[in-house]
């Protein structure tokens, strides 16, 4: 099988995010960068498919020079080769531009299935998989928590509000991974050594021949609205405090 997994480098979930004084973005200085957690599920599923059915796994990422670390991480987990779409023109890429860059990099490659994370935990857009599927004229399965390969198709479980859907989709298709799909492996030491020698093809905007102007622009970044300071409820007994909170929720907050 020819399997592709798209990855993005994002700030770690524990990272404090500081907005630049001029609102033009975030301060990147102190941030620890990691592979987007949802992309890890995609890479893991890609590796499991390969281990079961043979074939190879190609990692594709759009991002600045540091994103190479994330590609190497995926190669260390067991992927075979990488494509790094790297160009300052993509610094302000939105989901559409990112998907277009991925599509341009993937087009022409033999491909049975493409994995993406269901969303990246930085911009939280959750659009790239769907736009990529549209641009490559493939069906999409978003938010997948279980995947079974059945030859020319896959069967997937997708949770929706209050239900789960079992869907069958013809290959090739784009699958976006949700937590629960699998437990991603850690890269082994030999894996990390091997990854250094695996091929990664670096491409710029000109080589892909796509426009890099974002369609949805972040005009301004702001800190979250501050919450007014709360009250610590005093009292001697747990019961007394509980009764007071219940009263406040009823009379002051009016939410119960």
């Amino acid at each position: 099988m020819n399997i592709i997994a798209c990855v993005k480098q994002v700030p770690d979930t524990e990272a404090q995010i500081k907005v630049k004084a001029d609102g033009s973005g975030i301060e990147e200085g102190q941030i620890k960068w990691v592979m987007n957690p949802y992309d890890e599920f995609g890479v893991e599923e890609a590796l499991r498919l390969k281990e079961k059915n043979g074939g190879d796994v190609t990692i594709v990422s759009v991002g600045p020079a540091r994103a190479m670390e994330t590609i190497r991480t995926a190669l260390a987990m067991g992927a075979d080769k990488g494509i790094h779409v790297c160009d300052p023109a993509f610094d302000n890429a939105d989901a559409y531009v990112t998907a277009a860059a991925l599509a341009a990099a993937i087009k022409g490659m033999p491909c049975d299935i493409i994995f993406c994370g269901q969303r990246a935990i930085d911009d939280d857009s959750g659009q790239v998989g769907a736009i990529l599927a549209e641009l490559l004229e493939m069906p999409q399965l978003t938010l997948v928590t279980k995947l079974d390969f059945a030859g020319s198709s896959v069967k997937a479980i997708r949770p929706i509000e209050g239900a789960q859907l079992l869907i069958e989709t013809a290959l090739p298709c784009v699958v976006t991974a949700q937590k629960g799909l699998n437990e991603p492996r850690y890269a082994s030491l030999p894996g990390i050594m091997k990854a250094k020698k695996k091929p990664v093809d670096v491409k710029n905007a000109a080589a892909l021949g796509i426009a890099s102007e974002a369609k949805a622009k972040v005009a301004k970044t702001t800190p979250p609205p501050a919450r007014p300071p709360g009250k610590i409820i005093c009292g001697d007994e747990p019961a007394q405090k509980a009764v007071e909170v219940a009263r406040l929720l009823r009379e002051e907050a009016k939410v119960i």
């Binding site: 404090q16 995010i17 975030i26 930085d122 911009d123 939280d124 622009k217 301004k220 970044t221 979250p224």
Partner: peptide
């Protein structure tokens, strides 16, 4: 919200 609400973005589409 961006970064799950650690900051917010104002988005304009042309």
């Amino acid at each position: 919200p961006l970064y799950a609400g650690k900051c917010f973005g104002e988005i304009v589409t042309n």
